[in-house]
Amino acid sequence: MDGWLLSLTVAVGLVVAAPFIGGILSGIDRKLTARMQNRVGPPIIQPFYDLLKLWGKESFVASRFQALLAFSFMVFSVVAFTLLVLAQDLLLIVFVISLADVCLVLGSYCGRSPYSYLGGRRELLQMLAYEPILILAVVNIYAATGSFMVEGVFKLGFPLVILLPGVFLALLIALPIEARKSPFDISASHHAHQEIVRGVFTEFSGFSLALIEFGHWFKLIFYLALLALFWVPLLWLGAVLAFIFYFIIMIVDNIFPRLTWTFMLKAVWLAGFTLAVSNLIVLALLGVGLAWA
């Protein structure tokens, strides 16, 4: 009972802390990006200022549903992260994350502007790119641990990454999509100008945008947590490495232009997909996973 209570406390703590970590992470991101570009950059807590400012702005919507869907995006991002810290079913978590993304896409389509429309389309393509990888990653984890539950990872006793290096790499390849970073920053353009303005975010403003930003932090942390999961029981190492990998993603962001969606699909599918599948095949061939043991 005590253990149950403890884990619940930890979970609640993590859910509460996640947006702060996410915000600060994005602040650090901006600062470091600025430094890489030989600029000074904003203060680390600038994202919070931005959020507060967005929060307080007058609310404009291009469609009534937009706000609702932005809210849904935020809620399901939070739910996905919560499920993760509650050590729930990973497959389910992947589905919930995709639900959040679908909400964002629908919200962008609601915007009636060609740019959010094109952005929504591209966001769907991004989903097409990374969803199989996520599902395959989960299946891989199952193959390694014999369970779809996050608990299974903890029960394994040694870092997952030993069994699933390919999957880990595949997730790293897909990470820029979720972090909205170059070269896969095709749907929303987090920093630079792009042909479809701000893509999915074009029509979101004020409060709705704040919600989306908030949800985005959760998603970011969720992904980093997913990466960290591969290092359990050395979770602290995993956390550190996750941040390091985020830093690498930042560097990649700065040394790459935004590429086209065709390239994204090709790259992610060819590299990420192949890695994930071959990892699964290797596991099956070697029979090292717990699932078929």
Binding site: A34, R35, M36, Q37, N38, V40, I251, N254, I255
Partner: peptide, 21 residues
């Protein structure tokens, strides 16, 4: 392969060009 990398790293460890107006 990634030709921007040296520039980025150099910038990261040098003084920013920004003038704090």
């Amino acid at each position: 392969m990634v030709r921007m990398l040296p520039n980025i790293l150099r910038n990261l460890f040098s003084k920013p060009a920004t003038v704090k107006h």
